Simulated assay, not measured.
Amino acid sequence: MPIPYKHIDDEQGPVLLATVWRDGKIRSTSPHHHQRGQLFGAMRGLLAVDAGRSRWVVPATHAVWVPPDILHGVRSYGPYAGWSVHVAASACAALPSKPAILSVSGLLRESVARAATWNDAELNTAQSQLAGVILNEIATLPQTDLGLPMPRDCRLLKIAHALSDRPDDDRKLEEWAHWAGVAPRTLTRRFVAETGFSLTEWRQRVRLLRAIELLTAGRAVSAVALDLGYQNVSAFIHLFKRTFAMTPGQYIDLIAEG
């Protein structure tokens, strides 16, 4: 579904353009750039994002900010519903100067949903005020390292894409190496060098990112653990707490409070 605005790639038109996708289709864009800054995120599904020199997998609880003129591309995993905001370069001076992952607030989500109903025209007073709220949220929301770095080697990237599609895939390192056409030792060495994680750690992390999405959607902790291939619920809870400094139950409570 194309973005229904004619001023995405220039400074004409309103300071802020927003759109929402709810069709559940896979979203994929080849590397590109435009004059406006862009904030985008998912309401459902994982996003793999390539922005500047950074590559991440990002869950639906977070969004990615890309400043103007930064080369970037996106691919979604699983049924996808998401949103995007394009900000005129003239309004980006107070916003992050580098690509960043931001925690998404309820205020931002609701404001973007409202802005997505506007047409490609100059904003009235009320709309300008709401656009200011969105810009302030982008400027002040906490940045996080929650995103998962993606490898650059095409063979390793093939594995990373497969695990993003199916985090419960339990193939051993040797099986992945054979499938991707790379020596096991090379796979081990390069995966750490390019992502900072071993393949096992990376798979655990992508499972936890998918777990965040499922928990946020209301899935029970036990069901999430089994869906993602954990042998028992306690192992899942232990790993979740070790990674995020809270149990899945505490995370659910935190989301409910937000």
Rank of each mutant, 00 (worst) to 15 (best):
S128C: 14
L123E: 13
L71K: 10
A63K: 04
R171E: 04
V206K: 03
L156E: 07
N232R: 15
E110N: 13
W21T: 05
P4I: 01
Q129I: 09
H33T: 10
L108E: 09
Q38A: 07
Q250I: 13
I237W: 06
M150P: 00
T144G: 08
P68S: 11
I8M: 08
S222P: 05
V64G: 07
Y80W: 12
L239Y: 09
V112M: 06
R152V: 15
R242K: 14
P248V: 03
A88L: 06
I3N: 09
T195Y: 08
L226A: 13
T140F: 12
L239C: 10
R53H: 15
N119R: 15
E194P: 06
I138C: 10
I212Q: 08
D120M: 09
A18Y: 02
Q35D: 11
L71F: 11
I138R: 03
T144R: 08
L215I: 03
Y251V: 01
S103K: 05
F240D: 05
E213M: 08
L215Q: 00
R36F: 04
R109G: 08
A42L: 03
A217K: 10
T61L: 14
Q204N: 11
G82P: 01
A220F: 10
T140G: 07
E137D: 07
E201P: 05
T216V: 08
W202L: 04
Q12S: 15
D168K: 07
M150V: 00
Q250G: 12
D9V: 12
R36A: 07
G73V: 08
F191S: 03
Q127M: 07
E137H: 06
S234L: 06
H178C: 15
G24C: 14
I212E: 05
V87Y: 05
W56C: 00
T144L: 13
E257I: 13
V58H: 02
M43H: 11
P68N: 08
L209M: 13
A126W: 15
L108T: 00
G229N: 02
